[in-house]
Design a binder for these strands. Structure first.
Length: 507
RNA sequence: GCCCCGUUCGUCUAGCCCGGUCCAGGACACCUCUCUUUCAAGGAGGAAACAGGGGUUCGAAUCCCCUACGGGGUACCA
């Protein structure tokens, strides 16, 4: 099996593209086949610098790597269509020789005129086809001499000669048999006047030359598949299998998700940060939001595909093992950001701390927080991950560690202090100084004992001690917090608190 | 407009191919309760859907037809 992902570098890759790449990748890995990246940059006017690197980087972040491509090479190089330009012209001329295509010399104005003329005559959407081509300037209507001289002196395109009265049927791996009648199809341009091929020609030629066995792409290509089928036929080449994936729909109104949706939707549509080279506009990606690649991939896999069982959290390896085209759904899927977050949370909780450590450390350093050992940071991650959905929330949850409570406390929090306990704080501190074991479970035991000795339930004093120790009213287990803070720091915070609230500020 | 594809809880979906086991299952989100020092997480429960209409059949979410709606395509863009 050989599959490919063939984006055009017209901007950042959005999550729909990532999903298409993912499905291809999953299948290739599962079947031990190859996964190829081909850059379809045949429209020089839409070329965006940096887009190709962005596509590779984004997929690589997701754990999706290619076996062949412009960045890694391969037996079918080059993998950029702009670098294969001459090739397509040869194949286009071959089709003309075989009578499956023809040359056309119409200018843009002439095409427009034709369309408005036929529209005025009552045709709804005039196409360059069996009926209209006889009115146009092409090698079918012009005398051979004129064609030859125009070919030498004028720009021209090569158009596919759409056969009349044929039913084109093909099998789609997801949808089953699909059929079109050639009467609905037009004479598509195969080779543009600048010598570049259109998608249709380049795609078919390259898929054949590169030995692609399965074409897995978005549903927006379903309508042009009959053309592709006819092209394979005209070349006399064996056709790959086709699978058209349901589209990712916008969560709000209608239409498919597009690059322009940016972060206007309230959630990222790009995997990585992207800065538009023309406008300078910056869009943040899933990575910057604090998603794990594991989470993004998992959610995307489930958008339009269902494994059958009840399991929803999968690693890449599990996805590779279980993915199959026949469990891909036919209807478009709306992106659900909340569910994406939930899936990410599940991964955040399951991944080994070592995997999270470098990611959190990077955030830690970006915020210029005080230096910390791997061991300490791992402890903090363990404390915080259970209450985080996105990576940066881990930092928020352990704020107590790098920020001492600011005293006096805000009034709203002061109101929650237990006045009886405040008075006993000096005694409490004195007892703590006597402690020799400083470890979560032991602290819990000791604290409960102490509460009992004071004739209080531990529930009566814990909220206050939490406030004293962290300045916050919610967070991880207080015993665990004490354990990571260390005895000295806890004593220090108690001292600070007592000095502010000890005598003068009765609450 | 025309062509193609689609349509199960708000969302992602199971079930559909091979009619009965489906007064339709799971998950996210929502609500209630529970656990708990707190916030989460966890546990228990709740509300929530077969687009509509015709057929076929003893019986249809499942098969057929029509309609409606949604999406895609209709470029010298991919």
């Amino acid at each position: 099996m050989r599959v490919r992902f063939a984006p055009s570098p017209t901007g950042p890759l959005h999550i729909g593209g990532v999903r298409t790449a993912l499905y291809n990748f999953l299948l290739a890995r599962q079947k031990g086949g190859q996964f190829i990246l081909r850059i379809e940059d045949t429209d020089q006017s839409r070329y965006v610098p940096g887009a190709e690197a962005y596509i590779i980087d984004s997929l690589s972040w997701c754990g999706i790597e290619f076996d062949e491509g412009p960045h890694v090479g391969g037996p079918h190089a080059p993998y950029r269509q702009s670098e294969r330009k001459e090739l397509y012209a040869d194949y286009a001329h071959l089709l003309v020789e075989r009578g499956a295509a023809y040359y056309a010399f119409d200018t843009e104005q002439e095409l427009e005129e034709m369309r408005s003329r036929f529209e005025a005559a009552g045709m709804v959407a005039p196409q360059y086809n069996a009926v209209t081509r006889s009115y146009m300037k092409n090698s079918l209507t012009l005398p051979p001499d004129e064609v030859r001289s125009r070919l030498r002196s004028e720009p021209y395109v090569v158009r596919f000669l759409m056969p009349r009265g044929r039913e084109v049927r093909f099998f789609d791996e997801i949808r089953g048999w699909v059929s079109f009648h050639t009467r609905e199809l037009d004479d598509k341009v195969l080779l543009k006047s600048d010598g570049m091929p259109t998608y249709h020609l380049a795609n078919v030629v390259d898929d054949h030359l590169m030995g692609i066995t399965h074409v897995i792409r978005g549903e927006e290509w379903l309508s042009s598949t009959p053309l592709h089928v006819l092209l394979y036929e005209a070349f006399g080449w064996e056709m790959p299998k086709f699978a058209h994936l349901p589209l990712l729909l916008r969560p709000d109104g209608g239409g498919k998700l597009s690059k322009r949706d940016g972060d206007r939707l309230g959630f990222p549509v790009f995997p990585l940060r992207w800065q538009d080279p023309h406008t300078g506009e910056v869009s943040l990606g899933y990575r910057e939001r604090g998603f794990l690649p594991e989470g993004v991939i998992n959610y995307l896999a489930l958008l339009g595909w269902h494994p059958g069982g009840e399991q929803e959290v999968f690693t890449l390896e599990e996805l590779v093992a279980r993915f199959s085209l026949d469990r891909v759904s036919k209807a478009g899927a709306r992106f659900d950001y909340e569910k994406a977050r939930w899936i990410n949370q599940q991964h955040l909780r399951r991944l080994p701390v070592e995997r999270l450590l470098p990611l959190v450390r990077q955030l830690w350093e970006e915020r210029a927080l005080p230096s910390i050992s791997d061991d300490k940071l791992s402890q903090l991650i363990d404390l915080a991950r259970e209450r985080a959905t996105l990576l940066p929330e881990i930092l928020e949850a352990v704020r107590f560690f790098y920020m001492r409570p600011s005293l006096p406390l805000p009034e709203a929090l002061e109101a929650k202090l237990n006045p009886i306990l405040i008075e006993k704080l000096p005694d409490f501190l004195a007892e703590i100084r006597q402690l020799s074991v400083w470890e979560s479970a032991a602290l819990e035991g000791w604290l409960k004992e102490w509460a009992k000795s004071q004739g209080m339930g531990v529930g009566k004093l814990l909220p206050t001690i939490r406030l004293v120790s962290t300045g916050q009213e919610a967070g991880p287990s207080l015993y665990a917090i004490w354990a990571v803070l260390g005895k000295e720091e806890v004593e220090r915070r108690l001292e600070a608190f007592i000095s502010v609230y000890g005598v003068s500020r009765r609450v």
